[in-house]
Amino acid sequence: MNSKPHMKWSIADLHCDVLCKMQLNPQVDFSHPSLDVTRERLLEGHVNLQTFAIYISQVLGTPRFEHVIRQVELFRQHMISPSVGLKPLLWKEDLEERKDTSVGHLEGNEIKQHQGSPWALLSLEGVEALEGNPFYAELCYALGIRLIGLTWNYANWAADGIMEQRGGGLTRKGHELVKRCNELGLLLDVSHLSVQGFWEVLEEAAQPPIASHSNAFAVCPHPRNLRDEQIRALIARNGRIGLTFVTMFLKEQGTVTAEDLLPHIEHICSLGGERHLMFGSDFDGIEHHVQGLEHPGKYPGFAELLLKHYPEELVKGWLGGHALEYLQTNLPSKMSS
């Protein structure tokens, strides 16, 4: 094994659905046993960055911008309140300014952090709740959202999702929204987007898009996974691909274990993506958990598994370095806002 005994690991996870669970159940706080992701488990797993997605459940009825605001309020009350102490990540300067603290910084492909509180980044999963108004992207930006995925699985006013049978791309307002995101510095996430929408976003995005939680279609042919040409295109744009722990995206049938991520890693690396991989667990959006990856506290064991197969430099990049490098390059600058 390439690892040092008892080495601590720092992790970046680009997707979880804690906020949706909190919105649906007011009794759930950030330490509730029903959650996969809690502050305690983030610290246990040495998670240095957790992205919290704002996903508006269909249970709430017609999505409204007030639903987005409510999840932002939950984020502020439960994740970045002084009593919890996660640190909001808004600007590329945030990563630079904290180099000399115990909380963490990027050095090469390694995130130097073994103490302190993780970063918390806000994303929006599907723009249904923007109510057909591209101007609401400005309000998202003002509220601290820094990543936007245009769709969930189905069609909305901006684009078609990957499960929409007609497979359309962006609408006129969807193109307007992408343009506005470019102007603001909002980064674009292509997970869940239709194939045509993927290519249109890739062409129009000013900054490299990411796929925050998608796997390789060639390994597991689920529609939500990325085809080889999509993977190559993200690599060519210097975007990022966050492998996810949704069991049906990893393996078609049978028990799914942490080892089942390895064929996806191998395949994306074979396409030239070894410097573009990261992880987007989809914790709290998962119905069935991967054995060995049931919650963020399991990340150190996963790191040890990876080190049995791959060099330490690559593993550090996949666990967090590549995600932090991307954000340090592509987040908006505080000076230009």
Rank of each mutant, 00 (worst) to 15 (best):
residue 270 S to A: 12
residue 300 P to L: 08
residue 146 R to V: 14
residue 97 E to D: 15
residue 107 E to R: 05
residue 212 S to K: 01
residue 197 G to E: 04
residue 41 R to V: 09
residue 34 S to I: 06
residue 30 F to K: 01
residue 303 A to P: 07
residue 213 H to V: 11
residue 12 A to L: 10
residue 93 E to W: 12
residue 13 D to L: 04
residue 160 D to I: 15
residue 252 E to C: 02
residue 258 A to W: 05
residue 227 R to W: 10
residue 264 H to A: 06
residue 68 V to F: 10
residue 96 E to A: 08
residue 280 G to A: 02
residue 286 I to W: 00
residue 26 P to F: 01
residue 32 H to I: 08
residue 84 V to G: 04
residue 7 M to V: 04
residue 99 K to D: 11
residue 296 P to D: 06
residue 237 R to I: 09
residue 227 R to E: 08
residue 283 F to E: 03
residue 132 G to M: 13
residue 125 E to W: 01
residue 91 W to P: 13
residue 134 P to T: 14
residue 178 V to T: 08
residue 25 N to S: 10
residue 226 L to A: 01
residue 39 R to F: 06
residue 87 K to T: 13
residue 226 L to I: 05
residue 180 R to H: 12
residue 89 L to R: 07
residue 266 E to M: 03
residue 322 H to T: 13
residue 110 E to G: 00
residue 130 L to C: 15
residue 332 P to N: 09
residue 176 E to T: 13
residue 65 F to K: 03
residue 159 A to R: 07
residue 327 L to C: 03
residue 281 S to P: 09
residue 115 Q to K: 11
residue 28 V to Q: 05
residue 152 W to R: 02
residue 174 G to Y: 06
residue 86 L to H: 09
residue 238 N to P: 04
residue 191 S to D: 09
residue 128 E to W: 14
residue 180 R to M: 13
residue 12 A to D: 04
residue 135 F to H: 12
residue 265 I to E: 02
residue 179 K to I: 12
residue 28 V to R: 00
residue 123 S to V: 11
residue 239 G to F: 04
residue 158 A to Q: 06
residue 300 P to E: 07
residue 157 W to N: 10
residue 197 G to K: 09
residue 158 A to G: 07
residue 4 K to G: 03
residue 299 Y to V: 05
residue 8 K to A: 03
residue 76 R to W: 15
residue 203 E to K: 03
residue 10 S to H: 00
residue 98 R to H: 14
residue 7 M to W: 06
residue 336 S to A: 14
residue 52 F to C: 09
residue 50 Q to D: 08
residue 145 I to M: 06
residue 43 L to V: 15
residue 167 G to M: 02
residue 180 R to P: 12
residue 125 E to P: 07
residue 77 Q to H: 15
residue 255 T to Q: 07
residue 189 D to T: 14
residue 125 E to D: 02
residue 268 I to A: 01
residue 129 A to F: 12
residue 195 V to N: 00
residue 111 I to W: 13
residue 270 S to N: 11
residue 39 R to V: 10
residue 41 R to F: 13
residue 97 E to G: 12
residue 143 L to E: 15
